[in-house]
């Protein structure tokens, strides 16, 4: 299946993170246009952000979309949680910033691996992160 395809997955456990990142890989392989490095970057970013939803956001969802825009093919993943939200996105995106025992590469690192990165967060309401890889 091509552009227009969407599917939403729950993100509550680390097995859910695994399933989402494996599905992103399968969708990208099926399109036959994304290189192995592009696939690996998108899958790795998905893993980082999916884990954020499970660990920091108290669970949520990942919505996968295949897009066609101006002759370009894209894959987009939108991560949504109803967790505590992020007070300072600028601070949270800096390498090394961590609230837990991680390396603090999740947000800043993921941003470097994709073409488009959008984040919206409200304290007490939750966080939404959207990443897109174009071809």
């Amino acid at each position: 299946m091509g552009p227009g395809r969407t599917e939403t997955f729950p993100l509550r456990t680390d097995e859910d993170v695994l399933r989402v990142r494996q599905t992103v890989r399968i969708w990208m392989v099926e399109q036959r246009t994304f290189s192995l490095v592009e696939q690996t970057k998108m899958v790795t970013a998905t893993s980082e952000l999916g884990r954020n939803v499970v660990v920091h956001g108290g669970g949520g969802t990942a919505r996968l979309e295949l897009l066609s825009e101006g002759g370009r093919l894209g894959i987009r993943v939108t991560f949504q949680d109803q967790g505590p939200g992020i007070a300072s996105i600028e601070q949270a995106s800096r390498d090394g910033f961590t609230t837990g025992d991680g390396l603090g590469l999740g947000l800043g690192g993921s941003k470097r691996l994709v073409d488009d990165f959008e984040i919206a967060s409200e304290v007490g309401k939750g966080t939404r992160v959207t990443i897109t890889k174009w071809k």
Partner: peptide, 9 residues
Amino acid sequence: ATTIVELGL
């Protein structure tokens, strides 16, 4: 290898 270096690992 390419990916983890860009990730910052």
